[in-house]
Amino acid sequence: MRPLTEADVLASFVNADEEELRVLELPHDFLLVDWDYLDFFAWRDPMVSRRGYVIVPHEDHVAGIVLRTSDPARARSGLCSICHMMQPGNQVALFSARRAGAAGQKGNSFGTYICADLSCHENVRLAHPLAPNEVLVPGQIDMRLDGTRRRMEAFVSRVWSQG
Rank of each mutant, 00 (worst) to 15 (best):
D17V: 00
E25Q: 15
G78S: 01
R51F: 04
S109K: 11
D146Y: 01
F41K: 06
R74W: 04
P3G: 15
G78R: 00
S96D: 10
D17T: 06
R22G: 02
S109V: 08
D34V: 08
Q87A: 09
V23G: 10
R149S: 13
A11I: 01
F40R: 11
T69Q: 00
R125M: 12
G89Y: 00
R50Q: 14
V137I: 12
H84Y: 08
G107E: 05
L21K: 15
L32E: 15
Y113S: 03
H121K: 01
A11W: 02
N123A: 14
L130H: 04
G147M: 00
L126A: 14
G64W: 02
E18F: 04
H121I: 11
G52R: 00
D146S: 05
D142W: 06
R44T: 15
Q87C: 02
P46G: 10
V56M: 00
F40G: 15
H58T: 11
C83R: 00
V66P: 05
A102K: 12
V92F: 03
A42L: 05
S12A: 14
F110K: 09
P3R: 07
R158A: 04
P72F: 08
V9R: 11
V66L: 04
C120L: 10
M152Q: 08
E153D: 06
L31A: 10
L21N: 14
A75K: 06
A93Q: 11
I141S: 11
D45Q: 12
G64E: 02
G139M: 04
E59T: 01
A97M: 08
L126R: 14
A131M: 12
A11Y: 11
D117A: 11
L130N: 08
P129A: 13
R68I: 02
R151N: 09
D146N: 13
Q87H: 09
H121M: 13
D146R: 04
S119F: 01
M47E: 14
M1Y: 03
P3A: 15
D8H: 15
C80S: 03
F13Q: 11
V14H: 11
F110M: 08
G163D: 01
P132C: 05
L136Y: 09
E20F: 00
N133C: 10
V137K: 00
R51V: 13
I55M: 06
L130V: 02
M152N: 11
S119N: 14
E153L: 05
